[in-house]
C-alpha cells in the first residue's frame, strides 16, 4: 500500500544521503521524495512517498527514526491529510490545438506560465492522480517535456509535525 511519510531532519550536509542510502541498502521503495528547509533553518522537512506492506512500512519508520539526524517521522496515512504536487509541462501549442490546450489547462485549473509561438508551459498543482489525469487528457504527442516535484504532504486539521 502507498504511504506518505513526513520526516523532520536536521538540516545538515549528508543527511539526505543517509535517508536515500537507507532505502537502497534495505531494499525499500522510494516513489518520490521532496525536501526543503522549514521556517526553522536548522530543520528540513521531507516527504517520502513509498509503498509496501504494513510490516515494511513499520520497519521503514523505525529505521528512519534510528538515523541520528532524524528528529521525527510520521506516517500521514494514519489520519486525514492533504498532498500536493507541482508539475511543469511544456506542450506543443499550434493551430487549433493551441486553444484546446488552453481550455484543458483551465479545466484542470492550470496556469500557462510561459508562451512561445509554438509552445505553452503549464503549471499544474494537485494530488499526483490529478496530474496523471491531465497527462492522459491531452494528446500524448503534444507533450514536449514534463517535470514533477513529487508529493508534499501535510496533515489535515490541527495535527502538526513539530519538535
Amino acid at each position: 500500500m502507498r504511504h506518505i511519510l513526513s520526516v523532520l531532519i536536521e538540516n545538515e550536509a549528508g543527511a539526505l544521503s543517509r535517508v536515500t542510502g537507507l532505502f537502497s541498502a534495505r531494499g525499500y521503495n522510494i516513489d518520490s521524495l521532496t525536501v526543503q528547509t522549514t521556517e526553522d533553518p536548522t530543520l528540513s522537512r521531507m516527504t517520502i512517498v513509498t509503498h509496501g506492506s504494513d510490516d515494511v512500512i513499520e520497519q521503514i519508520t523505525k529505521q528512519l527514526n534510528k538515523l541520528i539526524e532524524v528528529v521525527k517521522v510520521i506516517d500521514l496515512n494514519e489520519a486525514d491529510h492533504i498532498e500536493r504536487e507541482l508539475m511543469l509541462i511544456k506542450v506543443r501549442a499550434t493551430g487549433k490545438d493551441r486553444d484546446e490546450m488552453k481550455r484543458m489547462a483551465d479545466i484542470f485549473r492550470g496556469r500557462v506560465i510561459d508562451v512561445t509561438e509554438k509552445t505553452y508551459t503549464i503549471e499544474l498543482t494537485g494530488p499526483g492522480d490529478k496530474l496523471d489525469a491531465f497527462i492522459k487528457a491531452i494528446d500524448a504527442t503534444s507533450i514536449l517535456e514534463t517535470v514533477r516535484t513529487g508529493a508534499s504532504g501535510i496533515a489535515r486539521g490541527e495535527r502538526v509535525l513539530k519538535i
Partner: peptide, 10 residues
C-alpha cells in the same frame, strides 16, 4: 532498538 522488534518475527 525498536527496529529489531518485529523485523523478522512478529
Amino acid at each position: 532498538d525498536p527496529s529489531s522488534i518485529a523485523k523478522r518475527v512478529k
